[in-house]
Structures are given as C-alpha cells and as structure tokens.
Write a protein that binds this DNA or RNA. Structure first.
Lengths: 222, 222, 222, 222
DNA sequence: GATGAATGAGTTTTCATTCAT
DNA sequence: AATGAATGAAAACTCATTCAT
C-alpha cells in the first residue's frame, strides 16, 4: 500500500516542513495573533500536540517561519548576485531581479516577512530586522562602491539613508506588484533600477536638488 | 480648585479624544490584536464600559483611530503643499517635509498608519489604503506634471510604479528616521528629494539604465 | 405652550404609568432578562435615572408590572362575573368571556403574566401564582357549588385538579387564540364552555371514564 | 480501580450526555438567559471550553437540550399509545398516562419544554412548538376519529380548538401535579380523562352549553 | 510517531446601577 | 422633576497549551 492520500508516520523533517509551510500560509493570511494553532495543525494535516512536539510553541513556530523564509529570501538574492568582479549597478540589478522574483513566487513568505513579522514587536521584529539590515547593508555597500568609483565623498549616514530609501521603494514596489495583476518582476526591477540608480548617479555627480530661494510671501518665479 | 490629578465628569468630546489618544498609543505599541481594551481604558483613565459606550467596539475604535490619524496626516501634508502655481518639485519638497515632520512628531500615529492598520486585513487595510492612495495619487500627479513640462511621454502604469516607489522610499525613510536618533525630518526629506527627483529627472531625459549585454556563462568585462 | 410632542415635567403618576407601560411591552417582547433598562427608559421617553428614581430597580419594576397587570386581569374578570345569585355555569361563562376578552385586548399583558413572569423563578413566579391561585380558587368554588347543587360528593383535591385543568385549558386557548388570526374571544369562551362544563356535568352525574378491561396481549373487543 | 469520585478522560459521547444533562437542569431552574455556561460546566464536572468544544454555543446547547428532551417525550408517548386498532379513548388514555408519567419522572425536562423554551422566542419556541404541534395533532386526530364514530360533524377549527384546550389542560395538570406532593401520574391522567373525554362525549351528542337568555340589565332568574 | 481529551487564563462585550448637577 | 456621565460585576466565548495513551 503506497501512495495513500494521507501519509502517516512520516520522518520528522518532512512533517516539520509541512507544518512550517502551513504556518507561513496562516500567518500570512491572518497575522500572528489571529492565526490559530488549530488552523495551522489542520492545514498541516497533523494533530496539534505534534506541532507542539516538533516546534515548541506558537512563538517558536513563528520564529521558525521567519528564519526559514528570511533565509530563503537572502539565499535567493545571494544566488542572483555576482561577486565583487561584477560592477555595482549590475549587482544591484541582479539583486533586485532576484528579490522581485522571490516576492512574486512566494507571496505568503513576502507578506510574513514584510508585514506580519514587523508589526509583532520583539522578538519577531528583531528577527526580520536582521535580514533587512543585511539587505540594506548590501545595498549600502553597492552605493559606497559606486561612490568610490566616482570619487565622490558621501557620509556613512547618507549612504545608509539612501540604502533605506532604495530598499523601501523596492518593498513598496514588490507589494504593489503582487497586488496589481500583470506586473512582472522584471518590470518592477527595471522601474526601480531606472528610478534609483539614475538618482544615485546624479548624486555621484554632486548634482543636488535644493529648494529655490524665494522671498517670503512672494510668488515663485520660474 | 483647578488642576486636579484626575478629572472626573468631563464632556463627551474630551473623553472621546482621550480614549482615541490612548488607543492610538496602545495599537501602535502592541498591534490591533494584542492591544486589549482593558489596557486602553486604563491608559485613558476611564472604565471599559465608557469606551464601549462612546466608541462602540474594538473594531470601531481602531477605525476611529485610523480615520483620525489619516485625516491628520493628510491635513498636515495638504497644508504644507502650495497650489498649482508652485512647480512640481517644490510641491514635492514641501509635501515630503510636511510628511516627515508629521511622522517625527506623531510616531505612534505613524506606526499605526504605516504598519498596524495595513496588516489587519479588511476593513482596516482598506481604510488606510484610501489615504495612501491619495498620497500616491498626489505624487503621481506631480510626476505626470513634470513629465509634461519636459515633453516626455510615460505610460500611466510607469507613473504609478514610480509613485509607488517614491512613496515606499518615503515610508521606509520615515520609519528609519524615527528609529535612528538624530535624524531630522528636513534631512530625510532632502535625502529623498535628491535621491528621487534626480532619478525622475533622468527618466525625463530618457536616460534609462539597462543591463549590459553579456554572453551567457561568461564573466562580465568592465 | 401646551400639547408639545414631548411633554416634560409631568406629574409622577403619569410618568410612572408611562414607564410601566413601556416595561410591560419590553418584558413581553424580550423576556425579563433580555429586556434592558435602557430600552425601557427609551421607550418610555425618559432617562434611566428617572426609572430608578420612581421604580427602584429592575426587579421592582417587573414586580410592579406583574402586580398592575394581574390586578387588571382580576378586575376585568371580577367585573364580568355576577354575584352569588347567578348560577355557577353562568358565572363561569361570564368569567371566561371576560378573561378571553382581556387576553385579546392586552396581549403584552397576557404574555407577561402567562409566560414571562412564570419562568423567572421567585419572587416573580410567586407573584403571578397568587393571581392564578385566585382564579383557580374561583373556578374551584364554582365547581364545588355545582357539585353541591347536584348532590355529588367530590374530594377537595379532585375539585382542585379539575380547576387546574379548566384554567390550563383556558390559558392554552387564550394564547392559541391570540396567535391564530380570526379567533374571537367569544368563540374561544364558547368552545371551552362546551368542552369543560359538559365534562363537569358528567362528573356530576358520576359518569366516569375508565379503561376497559382486556386480557393482556389480546385484541380489544368493541 | 472502579467508581472513582471524578472520572477523567471520558469518551466524547459520555461527556456530551453529562453536559446536556447538566444544561437541562440549569435551564430548568434558572431559565435560558439566567443560566450561565459557567454553572452548567461546573455542574457537568468539566471546564467551560469543553462545553464549547462539544456543544458549540449557549444557543446550540439549549437547542440540543430541547431536541433531546422533546424527542424523549414524544418517544415515551408514542411507545405508550397503541395502533389504530385501539379505540380513540383508549389511545388518549394511554397517551395521557405516558405523558404524565414522563413529566413526573423528568420534571426538569418538563419545565424546559413547557416553560423555558417557549418563552425564549425563536428559534427555541419554534423548536418546541414543533413537538407540541405533533401532540396537538395526535389529539386532534383522536377527536376527529371519535366524532366520525359518533357520526357528528365538527369543523376543523373546532377540533383544533378542542385539542388545544385538552393539551393545555394536560400541561397545566402536569405542572400542578409536579408541584403538588402526592399527586400520581395515573391520578392526573384519570382526572383529565374524566374531565375531557366526557366533555367531548357530550359534544358528540351535540349537547351544547349556551348562556340563558335574559333581559339586559335584569337579574337572572333561576 | 501520533492523538483525543481537557483546561487555565484571557478576551470582548453587556448591563443594572449610581453620582453630580 | 430630570439627566449626562460613569462604573463594578459578570457574561459568552477563544486559544495556546498539556496530559494520558
């Protein structure tokens, strides 16, 4: 008797994967608090005590979800990005493409990481913040590298701020793309690349925007 | 006898404000689900039944928070932005400045709007999405206007995507600024202005970024 | 200024009547527990503290309702029934007619007395039981009287049981008549008179029903 | 180890029965609204969550009580009544006996069915009304049958009204018997049989009661 | 390896009731 | 004569978690 509809007595690793899969889905759909262990167990096709036996507690289960999904996202981006011999804009492009592709392919994972985990306070926010910091750091590195190549001096905080801005726009675009039918990952990546890298390029050329001077109360003149 | 520690028998409007104030704080700190009506009532200095008498239910209370804070944010931005006679970049600058200032001055409000409300599903997500859409629309208008001035043709969806990216980076920067000591609203606005408007400027000049061509599997050559 | 839509500053007696009127209606519709003092006060057109000022408490209010309505029902029946010079069957007929008429004219009152009050345990059940006992006693008196006239000896308990049965059938018929369109009070009274007085008459003649004798397991024979 | 004071880990069916038993008792004593789930759970010897897990909600629990008890009452009556070959008066006698016996043996059940359920509005009143209608229908059938045998023509509504009256008197007697020490089921059934069947018999013989004619305002003359 | 049975602790919500004016 | 403001107490219901098998 092989290939029954419901496999019993599976090895632990398989069962754990099923459970975390189910949990990611539930957490994505309902949020951490509203997702119930009952529902997760049912969706995983196991009994509740087994979930506790393998994953410990709801908190640990959520943490496991965050860790696994964060790792997968980072791995996907890392795999897409080339080594130091590739110029920074190419590396950013590759990273963005990998990122948008991951977000599109794993919408539940993306919702958990970008939304649910960050609103649940510690320890979850910290857990996902670590991953985000890594990405921000990666982007900051690229920006710094580009600045170096262009012989431009930028303060560390400016670099951080720019990286934050870029990552934020990527996050926003990813969610928008997931919710808007017909927006491909490649398209989103291209838009962002145009938007961001060009802006960075100008910064490199020290072309900064500043408000025009005008007399208080007077109308603006061309 | 003035200035007692605990004011009793206040008029309804005052009490309602106190309650919504307390609720915003609790919801910001713990999220919608984890915040308890008990805690909110205590923080507001009233009994739970009064909260229900005046605000109806937890759901209505959260909605009231979202509406009030979204209104305040929009009002702040609207008040900062000039009319159509002001050029778009100036209007964006003014809007960003007002936005970052609001987020810095009302961190709980900002957390509720940007994080908590958006993760709680309907009807809350929709409530705050309306406000965000207004801002995205405002930014999209500016971008379109700038494109018109530069005689550049951009598709509506590209404008939308750019607006999403810009708003996303502003959100990201606002949260980062709030969590990073010593980052002023003006500074954040300036960074974003440089980053974003310059990027848009390049787009206007049709200078687009595109990946360099390379043979599959081959190394990239500078 | 006379004849306004909402009269304020009414004399106490009037206000109390309004309140008890409203209470009877609410208690009839929702039952004692489910009826809320808020609703009663609103229906009476006064504020809740006034209800408490005049009627004391929910329990006292319900008791007041029961007392007033029970008194009204008894008064109606008493008024309809003649004195001792009238023969018992005529008195029963008059009482039934008055009773069915009252129940039809005051359906809320009847619901409160027959259903709501009796299910709420003490002290309410006792309150209404007193009234019912009076009616049962009245009926028992008539039966006893008729027995006396017919020179038949019946035990007190038999008389009680017969009175209980007669009153129960009257109650049942009254509720049925109120819920069944087109059944007049007079009709119900006539049906019951036929049904009951004839049965009593037979009893008077000592014609009793008893199960026929039959052999166990055998078929019944004519 | 048998006969422990408190049995733990019982199969679901057993627990459910215990819970419904306890619920019937509480509902009978306090009514639907006043009975608390806490008390029911305690009386059943389980925790509240288990009650909710097995029975769903207070409403469903009450419905379950009504259904079970109504079913038991109907089954008891059905079992007592013979088939169509038994003459109608014998069938009525058997039904009444079974009915009074059931009411005496299960006083809580009887209180729930006759009082509590009928005052709680829909869906409970409807639930129990179905059962009562079955009994009324059964009685109406007997009356009709008897009328047929006696070659008497009665309208359907008269039959209905008589059945309502008979059932009402049975209900009244049952409650009275339960509250009055020393009244046996058999005695109550006999009283009712004498009272009711004789009355019906007279109806069959078309001996109807009617008020004597008298001049308006005049005294009655023997 | 896996589960049916069970619960402590907490949630939102409601309501009769009172105070201060 | 009358009320807007306010609450203590308790209700229904849920959920993460564990035990015994």
């Amino acid at each position: 008797m092989a290939g029954g509809a419901k496999a019993r007595r599976l090895p632990r690793v398989v069962r754990e994967r099923q459970m975390v899969d189910a949990a990611v889905r539930c957490f994505a759909r309902h949020g951490y608090q509203a997702a119930s262990m009952d529902e997760i167990a049912e969706l995983a096709g196991v009994s509740k005590p087994l979930v506790y036996l393998y994953l410990g507690s709801k908190e640990e289960l959520f943490t496991a979800c965050i860790r696994r999904e964060a790792g997968a996202l980072l791995a996907a981006v890392d795999a897409g990005v080339g080594g130091a011999e590739v110029p920074p804009d190419e590396r950013l492009w590759a990273g963005l493409l990998a990122f948008f592709t991951y977000a599109a392919d794993h919408p539940d994972s993306w919702v958990v990481l970008s939304r649910q985990a960050r609103t649940q306070g510690e320890p979850f926010a910290g857990e996902v913040a670590r991953m985000r910091d890594e990405i921000v750091g990666f982007v900051a590195g690229l920006i710094g590298e580009a600045a170096g190549e262009a012989d431009v001096v930028i303060t560390g905080r400016d670099v951080d701020a720019l990286a934050q801005a870029l990552v934020g726009s990527a996050e926003s675009l990813a969610s928008w793309a997931n919710e808007t039918p017909g927006v491909a990952a490649k398209e989103a990546a291209a838009t962002l690349m145009n938007f961001a890298w060009a802006g960075l390029g100008n910064l490199m050329k020290s072309e900064r925007w500043s408000p025009r001077r005008r007399l208080p109360g007077s109308k603006v003149t061309g």
